[in-house]
Simulated scan of single mutants.
Amino acid sequence: MPELKVDLRLHSIKEDRFFIQALGGLNEESVQTATTYHIQSTISVDSETNLVNVLFDFKLQLKEPAQSKNVLLHLIAVTTFEVVNHSEVFKPVTKKGDAEVRGIPTELASMLTSTAYSTCRGILYARCAGHVFQAAVLPLLADPSVFLPKAEPVKTAQNAVKSATINHPGADSMPRG
């Protein structure tokens, strides 16, 4: 497979939604043991502007089934990248009427997803500073493919959506920071 060379620029980072619900009775230890993140991710290419949008929707919820619908923290963030050499990177995948549907290479989708996840991780860390939820730091993402569809290539015309649930790491199970 030929090496993929991409001329890429960060276009924008946008917080679409953020809230923390006031909930008594939680301390840093209980936040680590009694909560879990539910995460959805969407990656799409705007064919007119050649911008790649990576949306992450993070919800921190209690693990206990009776209270799991209670969202304690919610962040929706979109990290947008500009692909300068778009004609070399986005290859035609299918024809849909008269319009070409372009695909994003899996390697690029993986890298952009990983970068957007890390960006959101930093946003959450900064937004939760001084709050009991600062103990709910997202773990480092070792494998961004958990958020990518299994089909090759990623078909961006349909906004490929992938979900995951991440439990908080114990103090000695995963690196924090």
Rank of each mutant, 00 (worst) to 15 (best):
L62V: 08
L60I: 06
S47R: 08
L62M: 11
K96T: 08
F58T: 09
E29S: 14
E88V: 06
E29Q: 15
H74P: 00
L60P: 01
N70I: 06
K59V: 09
E64G: 03
N53H: 12
N85A: 00
I43R: 11
S41M: 14
E48D: 13
N27G: 14
N53K: 11
F56P: 09
N50A: 10
K95C: 00
S87F: 03
L62W: 04
E29W: 13
V78D: 05
E82G: 02
L60Q: 03
N50V: 07
V45A: 13
S41R: 13
F81G: 00
Q61K: 01
T42I: 15
Q40A: 15
F81H: 03
K96W: 08
L72A: 01
T80V: 07
T42F: 11
N53C: 07
K59F: 04
N85L: 02
I76S: 05
T94V: 10
F56T: 10
V78I: 09
V45T: 14
E82K: 06
D46H: 08
S30Y: 15
V84T: 06
N50M: 10
A66C: 02
T42Q: 15
L60W: 01
V84D: 04
H86P: 01
N70L: 09
S44K: 12
Q32C: 09
D98R: 00
E29R: 15
L72F: 01
F56S: 07
S87G: 00
I39Q: 07
S30A: 13
L55K: 13
E88D: 09
K95A: 00
N85I: 06
N70W: 01
H38K: 14
T33H: 10
L75G: 01
T79M: 05
T36F: 08
L72I: 03
G97M: 01
L62G: 03
V78C: 05
S68P: 01
E28L: 10
D46V: 11
V93P: 00
T42D: 12
N53P: 06
Q40V: 12
F56N: 08
T49D: 13
L73N: 02
H86S: 07
I43A: 12
V52N: 06
K95E: 00
T36K: 13
D46N: 14
V45W: 02
